[in-house]
Structures are given as structure tokens and as C-alpha cells.
Simulated assay, not measured.
Amino acid sequence: MPFWYQATRLWVWCLYPFSLLMQLISTIRRFCYKKGWLASYQSPLPVVVVGNISVGGNGKTPFVISLCELLITAGYKPGVISRGYGGKSPQYPLLVVNETTGKEAGDEPVLIYQRLQIPVVVDPVRSQAAIYLAEQCDVDVIVTDDGLQHYALQRDIEVVVVDGKRRYGNQHIMPMGPLREPLSRLQSVDYIINNGGVCSGEFTMNLLPSTCKRVDGKQGTLTISDINACAAIGYPPRFFETLRKQNFRLQKTVSFADHHAYTSDDFDQFELDIPLLMTEKDAVKCTSFAKDNWWYLPIDGQLPNTFTQPFLDKLKQIKESKC
């Protein structure tokens, strides 16, 4: 909601009672899980939860990919679990394979699998996905894409990703603001990753654009700077600004809702003779009907050494204690 990131207007305070109710429910729910009054699953493998306390795109998926690459380089065999938002499968848990579509698994799990070629399991009940991953796949670390508030799955490390520009908006709980939990929740997480910004006590992640690739999977090089662009992510303006910084001249930009289920009709509004550039998350849903001048921009997350080594040291201790 745009008003979440603006000065709080008088009418917004009409939502305050609902925000108080949301905060009360959230606090009681977490307390019940912490006390063991609500059942939760503890995996025999280390579990790293990557999430946020606010809604909207904060850069979790690029971080998950970079984190898994770090783990692989360090000798671990990570697997990823996801709720699979935007997808619907006839059965769960769903192990993502080459033939899995975004309609089945959701765009982010398919993207993560295509980039990493590691086990990715989707289930609305994340604990069931964790059980499947531990029992059926050759992994030794579980990374959950989102799920900070899914307390039915116990975790060993919590990582929160923050939008370095928008931060926490007006700092109110939904629906008055963008927060899922109060800011005080950050005091109990292990690491805070700042996407594109600098703040004391946080680790800065820089998103680095790579070379544009064709959506249809064929080889090619994008040589034209005048383009159209679309995005169905949590915060499309960030993507459009990234393109401008790459010296693209945007003729037309169109934002869709996050996790939008694309059809070919969505693209009738774009001129056929102008290249169309989209996010990598969008591309995984458009391969079956992509035109030869549709492109996507891969983004890689760069993690600082001040985060990577302490994280690996902490994970090593956790794994040894579980063994």
C-alpha cells in the first residue's frame, strides 16, 4: 500500500484498532509456540529461515540463492523449502524438477531450482516440506525461503532481509502499516541483511545485475537500449530503476501484482518491435509463450565477508551439536 511509505495521514489512524488486534494475535501465537502449547517440528538438520517482518519485496530470493551458493562452496549440501505462493499442485510435498512450472510450484521455487539445481520442496505446510527434504533428499542443511512467522517449524538460525530504501515504512503493524510483527522482533533474530543500504548492526547485500538472457532459453545478446519493461514483484520500481542504471531507456513500464500469473494476453499492450525486459522471476512463468525479443535480467546478491564467515562458523557449531 503506498500510504504505508508516506507520512501517516489522519484517516490512517482509523486502522489502528485492527493493527492492535493483529499485533495481539501475532504475539499470543508466537508465545504459544515458544511455550510448546502449539505443536512444532524440529528437524534433525540445521534449519535456516530467511524472511522479513514486513510485506512486499525485500530481496529474500536473491539472498537465498546467494546463501545456498555460499553453502555449496563451503562443502554443504543445502536444500530449500517454500510455501510456493502463487502455485497450486495436485499433491504435496512437491519436489521441483525441470518440468515443474510456476503454476504448480510458484515462481520463486522454480527460479531457485533453475539457478542452483539443488533439491527444492514446496508445501503450504513448511514442516512437511522439511520432513520430506530430510528423509528423501541428499541434503545436510535446510534453507526456507520466507517463513519467519511459520513457527510450526523450529529454526536454528533466523535471517531477516530489509529493503535498504523503504525500510519499515511508517513502522506500524498491518493494516495500518507494512509490518507483520513489531520492530522489537528484530532483537531476537540472528542476522539482519540490508538490501542496498547501510545501517549500523546490519549486513549490506548489494544486488549485481548480470547479462540479459532470452526468456525462451535460446542464446542471444541484447544490443538495443530502448526497451519496454514489466515486473510482477513486491516492489517493481526497484527493478525499473536498476534498468535505468544499466543505461536502458525505458519506453514503457508496466507493474503487475506480485506473483501475477501471466498469460499471453498480458503482453498485448507492448509493441512487438521493441524488446521487452522483465525480471528473472517473471521469466520462469513466460517461457512457454515467450517471443524472441523478450529478455530477463538475472540479479546476483553479493554478501559481505563480515557476514559470511560468522554465519558459517555458527552453522558449523549447530551442525556439530545436532550430530
Rank of each mutant, 00 (worst) to 15 (best):
145 D>H: 02
208 L>G: 00
142 I>G: 10
154 Q>E: 13
175 P>S: 05
153 L>M: 07
187 Q>L: 10
144 T>M: 15
188 S>T: 11
200 S>K: 13
144 T>G: 10
194 N>M: 09
124 P>L: 06
134 A>L: 08
127 S>W: 15
122 V>D: 07
190 D>Q: 06
139 V>G: 08
112 I>L: 05
187 Q>E: 15
209 P>D: 03
108 E>F: 01
196 G>S: 01
171 Q>V: 00
125 V>H: 14
152 A>T: 09
132 Y>V: 02
106 G>A: 07
200 S>V: 05
156 D>T: 02
117 Q>W: 01
207 L>G: 01
156 D>W: 11
194 N>Y: 10
106 G>Q: 12
163 D>H: 03
160 V>M: 03
176 M>Y: 13
146 D>V: 01
136 Q>K: 14
114 Q>I: 00
164 G>S: 05
126 R>A: 05
105 A>P: 09
107 D>S: 05
188 S>P: 03
149 Q>I: 01
193 I>W: 14
132 Y>Q: 11
121 V>I: 09
192 I>D: 13
151 Y>W: 14
132 Y>S: 11
172 H>M: 04
152 A>E: 15
139 V>D: 13
200 S>N: 08
194 N>A: 04
124 P>R: 10
109 P>N: 11
148 L>H: 14
187 Q>R: 13
148 L>D: 05
121 V>E: 14
164 G>F: 09
166 R>T: 00
119 P>D: 08
144 T>H: 14
167 R>V: 00
180 R>L: 03
133 L>E: 13
208 L>H: 05
175 P>L: 01
118 I>D: 08
106 G>F: 04
188 S>R: 13
209 P>A: 00
113 Y>D: 08
156 D>P: 08
191 Y>S: 08
201 G>W: 11
108 E>R: 06
105 A>M: 13
137 C>K: 13
187 Q>N: 13
114 Q>T: 04
180 R>S: 07
162 V>G: 01
210 S>V: 02
199 C>E: 12
135 E>Y: 03
196 G>H: 08
189 V>L: 10
162 V>M: 07
122 V>C: 04
176 M>D: 12
131 I>M: 12
151 Y>A: 02
108 E>C: 02
178 P>I: 04
133 L>H: 11
